[in-house]
Measured scan of single mutants.
Amino acid sequence: CHSECLGNCSQPDDPTKCVACRNFYLDGRCVETCPPPYYHFQDWRCVNFSFCQDLHHKCKNSRRQGCHQYVIHNNKCIPECPSGYTMNSSNLLCTPCLGPCPKVCHLLEGEKTIDSVTSAQELRGCTVINGSLIINIRGGNNLAAELEANLGLIEEISGYLKIRRSYALVSLSFFRKLRLIRGETLEIGNYSFYALDNQNLRQLWDWSKHNLTITQGKLFFHYNPKLCLSEIHKMEEVSGTKGRQERNDIALKTNGDQASCENELLKFSYIRTSFDKILLRWEPYWPPDFRDLLGFMLFYKEAPYQNVTEFDGQDACGSNSWTVVDIDPPLRSNDPKSQNHPGWLMRGLKPWTQYAIFVKTLVTFSDERRTYGAKSDIIYVQTDATNPSVPLDPISVSNSSSQIILKWKPPSDPNGNITHYLVFWERQAEDSELFELDYCLKGLKLPSRTWSPPFESEDSQKHNQSEYEDSAGECCSCPKTDSQILKELEESSFRKTFEDYLHNVVFVPRKT
């Protein structure tokens, strides 16, 4: 048989008469490798580009789960590009990614509803959504962080984005990388972005840091009482949809009607710091009717980097990364020049730590249904340095008659930039024990000054392991946590139920 035959053949030295091919099969003959313009397919066939392209389009058009959109890589027609490569849609070739590779997620039936953290986790790592997304989240724990972890990498949506009755959302900033909504599939009414009845939605994105392009379709905003109209108009300008909307697409009466839409800028007039305090004062603000001013709200939190936005980490279910302080308005003076500047002394802060701070007014709604208010920009203030805590785990070892090696770990709280350490030492008198000992005694162990690591005695271990207080009263049991108490109650309830079950099964009433 021919060298490319495997198993047997019907005619000697003829690659077209093989029972099976050793390498690849091409047009009725066995070959060692697939010549151009053919590609290896499933490690035994040679196919042309049209064959591989037909497989790709067949799966793409069917949208069946589990099928493969075949691509070409290293002269092979394979189910998908290997790690580190992405497909070129024009020629199906796998090309190296520039940075992290995109991950295209194809949605069944063309859309997916995100109504819980669990459903959001199914899209973790996706960068391109081939379909439409509907966000409908009523509640949950730590929602802002969970949504950002699972949806934060999405850069492109081919269909539309719909935010509907998501009472738990305060902001859409968890879509931190969303840059493009194509609108290839539109919501009824030709809408590519749809926001309806979101009672706590206050911000779409921080438009000073976020760009969003909507290729096709219109915007729809109705019944978002805490979303200011200025935020919607800003989205029109940034996304390129200005002029597409009709009169009733953006409701003037049901958007922002319960919001404090600040239209003035508060400026800080005085800032002073110490290692654990920050004193702030800002310019006074009074609405047209000074009785509408209820006070100020001061927001602050630790910020290692200057990239904080107002609604980071917030949701309507209680999660809030900001510390909020309510401040009463100052006494009002008739003389504008003698107006008191409101302020606040922030206490209990960490030394040498940068804080993000902003302040906003708290006002009631005027009778004319106009909203007044003022808010400052987010500023960054760093507390002063102070003395560091003591170095940890000092170790001293003498390696000769004239040297001592000293080692330690950095302090747990540096409280500033540590530039150097101060080492103090003092000579001590020799131990009298060394002169009084009889060095001729056998088995004498000389006193040693070398360091030995501390260890816990058996008594201390027994005390720590004991669940009861000892007789001397030195140790006591740790208080039980809520989960331990709940577990004990469940076990007790189970024992009672099981005992009742045994009584009912074992003891049967005697027939009379």
Rank of each mutant, 00 (worst) to 15 (best):
C105A: 15
H106R: 09
G110K: 13
G110Q: 14
K112A: 14
T113E: 12
S116K: 03
S119E: 07
A120Q: 08
Q121R: 03
Q121N: 03
E122C: 11
L123T: 14
L123F: 09
R124Y: 02
C126A: 02
C126G: 00
V128L: 15
I129S: 01
N130C: 08
N130L: 13
G131I: 00
G131V: 00
G131H: 02
S132D: 07
S132P: 02
L133T: 03
L133G: 00
I134P: 00
I134E: 03
I134V: 12
I134L: 12
I135L: 06
I135P: 00
I135T: 06
N136F: 08
N136Q: 03
I137A: 14
N141I: 11
N141S: 12
N142D: 05
L143H: 02
E146M: 05
L147F: 12
L147K: 00
E148Q: 11
E148G: 08
E148R: 11
A149D: 11
L151R: 00
L151V: 14
L151S: 02
G152T: 08
G152M: 10
G152I: 01
L153K: 13
E155T: 08
E156F: 11
E156R: 06
E156L: 10
I157W: 01
S158N: 06
S158V: 12
S158M: 10
G159D: 00
Y160F: 09
L161M: 11
L161D: 00
K162P: 00
K162C: 08
I163Y: 01
S166C: 13
Y167L: 03
Y167I: 13
S171M: 05
S171K: 07
L172E: 00
S173M: 13
S173W: 12
F174I: 14
F174L: 08
F174M: 05
F175Y: 03
F175S: 01
F175N: 01
F175V: 09
R176K: 10
K177F: 12
K177E: 08
K177V: 09
K177M: 08
L178V: 08
L180Q: 12
L180F: 09
R182Q: 12
L186F: 06
L186P: 09
E187V: 06
E187M: 07
E187Y: 05
I188W: 05
G189P: 06
G189S: 10
N190E: 08
S192P: 06
F193L: 10
A195K: 01
L196Q: 12
D197S: 08
D197N: 07
Q199G: 06
N200F: 06
N200S: 05
N200G: 06
N200K: 12
L201C: 06
L201D: 01
L201R: 00
R202Q: 02
Q203F: 03
Q203D: 06
L204R: 00
L204C: 13
W205S: 04
D206T: 07
D206K: 13
W207R: 04
W207D: 11
W207S: 08
W207M: 12
S208H: 06
S208G: 13
K209T: 13
N211T: 11
N211R: 10
N211K: 11
L212H: 05
T213H: 15
T213M: 08
I214C: 12
I214T: 12
I214V: 12
T215V: 09
Q216K: 01
Q216S: 10
G217A: 07
L219M: 10
F220S: 03
F221S: 09
F221G: 03
F221T: 04
H222I: 03
H222L: 11
N224L: 13
P225S: 05
K226L: 09
K226W: 06
S230H: 02
E231S: 12
E231G: 14
E231V: 04
E231T: 14
I232M: 10
H233D: 15
H233V: 07
K234F: 11
K234I: 07
K234S: 08
M235W: 08
M235I: 15
V238K: 12
V238Y: 14
V238A: 08
S239L: 12
S239D: 04
G240W: 05
T241F: 09
T241A: 10
K242H: 05
G243P: 01
G243K: 10
G243S: 10
R244N: 07
R244F: 15
R244G: 14
E246T: 08
D249K: 04
D249F: 08
D249T: 11
I250N: 14
A251H: 12
L252K: 06
K253M: 10
K253E: 09
T254M: 10
G256Q: 05
D257F: 03
A259M: 07
A259F: 11
C261T: 02
N263L: 08
K267C: 07
F268T: 04
I271R: 02
R272W: 05
T273F: 12
S274W: 05
S274H: 15
K277F: 08
I278R: 00
L279M: 04
L280C: 15
R281N: 14
W282G: 01
P284S: 10
Y285K: 03
W286C: 05
W286A: 10
W286P: 03
P287R: 03
D289Q: 02
D289H: 03
D289Y: 02
R291E: 15
R291K: 01
D292H: 03
L294D: 11
F296C: 09
M297N: 15
L298A: 12
Y300K: 04
Y300Q: 15
K301V: 06
K301M: 11
E302I: 04
E302C: 03
A303K: 00
P304R: 12
Y305K: 02
Y305Q: 14
Q306E: 03
Q306S: 08
N307W: 12
V308K: 07
F311H: 10
F311M: 07
F311K: 03
D312T: 10
D312I: 12
G313F: 12
Q314E: 05
D315Q: 04
A316G: 04
C317G: 03
G318Q: 06
S319G: 06
N320T: 09
N320V: 10
S321N: 11
T323Y: 13
T323R: 15
D326L: 02
I327N: 02
D328L: 10
P330Q: 09
L331D: 12
L331H: 11
L331S: 11
R332P: 08
S333K: 11
D335K: 09
K337G: 09
S338P: 14
S338G: 09
Q339F: 14
Q339H: 11
N340L: 09
N340W: 10
H341A: 13
H341F: 10
H341R: 11
H341D: 12
H341L: 11
P342N: 14
G343L: 07
L345K: 12
L345S: 11
M346E: 13
G348K: 02
G348W: 15
G348L: 05
K350H: 12
K350V: 08
W352F: 14
T353A: 10
T353H: 15
A356E: 02
A356Y: 00
I357R: 00
F358Y: 04
R369P: 06
T371I: 09
K375T: 14
D377R: 13
I378V: 15
I378N: 02
I379R: 11
Y380P: 00
Y380M: 06
Q382T: 13
Q382W: 05
T383M: 03
T383A: 02
D384S: 05
V390P: 12
P391L: 03
D393M: 15
S398T: 15
S402N: 14
Q403G: 13
Q403M: 08
I404C: 15
W408T: 01
W408I: 15
W408Q: 01
P411D: 00
